[in-house]
């Protein structure tokens, strides 16, 4: 007697057997539909960053303006917003107003700093950008070959990272920051109301 024969002669009553397969089929179709539905709200541009919770990559870069080199380690011991931008980036123009606002808050409160990384850009383009839209007053690293940007896992501009005083990336924000971003995102992290690991970005729209 072959084994397979006894295996396939499961003696279920035919009605039960049919009902079982119906449930399986309907369940499988429902599961697929649910997954499709959930997939609809996915933003394919918002790629989750594996860097949140990890140590930020140090950099020591040429400044965009002035002589003093821009180093990440110089910002140790305070909260830091690292903003990646470029004069070629359209959303950076709309974000700039909010960055100026954030810089004003930073000066007023003094418990966090901002540093810009101008990547894949020309000096001339960036300088014109700052002249036209205003200089927020914080230092900018100049990264024409986007070495820092790739080292930080940047996909596009603008992207902002929040770095904790001990040099770990607490949060990644893809896309322009917005009015009220400080109160909504940065302040809760600084005050420790949001744990570093659970902060998940809404992503660019």
């Amino acid at each position: 007697m072959p084994v397979s024969e006894s295996l396939f002669c499961l003696e279920l009553p035919p009605t039960m057997f049919k009902a079982f397969w119906k449930i399986v089929l309907v369940g499988a179709i429902a599961a697929i539909l649910v997954i499709f539905y959930l997939g609809l709200s996915n933003n394919p541009r918002a790629i989750p960053s594996p860097l949140v919770g990890k140590k930020a990559q140090p950099f020591d870069a040429e400044p965009l303006v002035g002589e003093q080199r821009v180093r990440l380690q110089d910002y140790r011991g305070q909260w830091l917003v690292v903003n990646f931008w470029g004069s070629w980036c359209v959303s950076c123009v709309s974000e700039h107003r909010d960055l100026m606002q954030l810089a004003a808050i930073s000066r007023q409160r003094g418990d966090f700093a901002i540093v810009g990384v101008d990547f894949r850009d020309t000096r001339q383009g960036a300088e014109t950008f700052l002249k036209r839209h205003g200089n927020p007053g914080y230092a900018h690293a100049f990264d024409p070959k986007q070495k820092i940007a790739i080292d930080w896992g940047v996909y596009g501009a603008p992207e902002s990272y929040i770095v904790s005083p001990d040099g770990k990336i607490a949060h990644k924000h893809t896309g322009p920051i917005y009015p009220g971003w400080f109160e909504k995102v940065l302040l809760p992290i600084i005050e420790g109301k949001e744990s570093v690991e659970t902060v998940v970005d809404g992503g660019a729209g």
């Binding site: 790629i47 989750p48 594996p50 990890k54 080292d151 930080w152 896992g153």
Partner: peptide, 8 residues
């Protein structure tokens, strides 16, 4: 690259 950009 995997460390920076993840499984993606």
């Amino acid at each position: 690259f995997h460390d920076r950009y993840g499984d993606y």
